[in-house]
Simulated scan of single mutants.
Amino acid sequence: MYFLGAQFVTILTIIHGLNGENTTCDLALDLILILDSSGSISVPEFAHAKYAMVDLVERLNINEKGAHVAVVNYATTVDLWAAFDVYNYDKISLVERIKDLEKLDTGTATGDALYVARHHCEGVCRRPEQAVTRAFIVFTDGNSNSGRLVVDEAPLLPGPAMANVFAVGIGDTITNAELIAIASDKDYTLRLSNYIELTTAINNLTIATCHFPAFIMPNIKILNHQVGQNLYHYYQMNTQMIPNKNGMFIDLIVNNTVGRTQAYTSLTSKNPKGLNTRQASTPLKDRTYTQYIPVGTNRFYFSLFGMEPVNQYHFVAQLRFL
């Protein structure tokens, strides 16, 4: 059961129209799973949470160039375990480690968990100029009651860390305000009534994770990306961090080295792919697509759609100020 309210937006807004898509994810992804194991969670509930995380991990393409996964198990204390360099991206070993996570059984220090996850990612996540999607998913059943404040730690994740943060609340103790404070976007929240529902929601959560747009930096050329036929690769630029006093243009320059792509852009849709977006076909030679960015724009989103069996490309988003 999903809960909707006037001020509360759930995962359904992200996956609208995506049902029926492949529920595995081949995306290159730096993913940190942040799991609450405080005293308010029963042993069977914690087992359901671990089962759900295993299910999500099983759907990822975990390897050196694909998905990298770290796990943060927290209560009042925070225990970090990462797949990075530990098992050489071995999915089997990662799954076994998740199954062996111990319930910590104390308070709820979500702010501390976000702090540990951010610093871990700053050290081992792939470099921003590689434009690999970064995603943190927090699973919790209650408001933080110890340690660092969520309202202080959460804003640092989509900013300097350039990560998408998704908050999953289970049960009726966690408040909507807490979930929205954790999430990097009001759309990135999901509320479930119990942990059994979490195990059934993982399919949709996997789809949402695979549609997170990767952050890119302005004027930095991104090399050797690829997208399959009839698939999209999503990107975003945080234009709120750019001093834009009079409006500016972004010139998106795409060079297809193999195959062909179609570019879609938007200032509002996180996954531009047709209606209500702008588009430009990008043939084998360089193609420049220009988007005007008004003052006060928070994000520039775009996607590249694969038109051939194999599609490889470089691109750069260059700024032009007025």
Rank of each mutant, 00 (worst) to 15 (best):
L114K: 10
I98H: 04
C125V: 04
L284W: 07
V72S: 06
V310D: 06
H211E: 06
I170G: 14
D105Q: 15
T257N: 03
D90R: 14
R320N: 15
A117W: 03
S184H: 05
Y234L: 08
C121G: 15
V310L: 13
D85A: 12
V168M: 10
K186P: 08
L4P: 00
G17Y: 14
H68C: 01
K245G: 05
V116F: 04
G228W: 02
N61D: 11
A167G: 03
A214W: 05
L31C: 02
S303L: 04
D112R: 11
Y2W: 07
T175C: 00
Q240T: 06
V310K: 02
N271Q: 14
V116A: 14
S42G: 06
V43Q: 12
S42H: 00
G142L: 08
V310Y: 01
Y289F: 15
L322S: 10
E153L: 11
V9W: 13
Q130E: 15
M162L: 14
A117T: 12
Y51D: 02
D79R: 14
K270W: 12
G147Y: 11
D90K: 04
E21C: 12
F305A: 06
T133P: 09
S193K: 09
N145I: 02
Q312I: 05
H119I: 08
T282I: 09
D26L: 11
K221G: 08
L4Y: 03
R148M: 13
V43P: 01
L27I: 13
I250A: 11
K245N: 13
I202Y: 09
N246C: 15
Q262S: 00
L275D: 08
R134A: 01
S266T: 00
N256P: 03
M162D: 14
V132E: 09
D79W: 03
D185M: 09
F300E: 06
L252Y: 01
R278D: 07
V116G: 04
N204G: 11
S281K: 08
I253Q: 13
R287A: 15
R320L: 10
I293E: 09
Y51E: 10
V86A: 10
S144I: 00
Q240N: 14
N230E: 05
A52R: 14
Q226R: 13
T76S: 11
I222A: 10
D172F: 04
I170C: 07
A67C: 02
G169I: 12
R134C: 01
T209A: 07
Y234P: 12
T10Y: 10
S40M: 05
I202C: 01
A135G: 02
I137V: 15
G142H: 07
Y264G: 06
E308G: 00
Y235L: 12
Y292S: 06
N88H: 14
D36I: 07
H16R: 14
M248G: 01
Y188G: 03
R134W: 13
N298C: 03
R134K: 14
F300K: 04
G159M: 03
S40Q: 09
P309C: 04
D36A: 11
I137Y: 05
L205Y: 00
V71G: 10
V95R: 02
G147V: 05
P218H: 08
Y74Q: 03
V310C: 00
E64W: 05
L319D: 07
T277P: 00
A177Q: 11
A67M: 03
N194F: 01
A109E: 08
T261Y: 05
I11D: 13
G39Q: 07
Y301H: 07
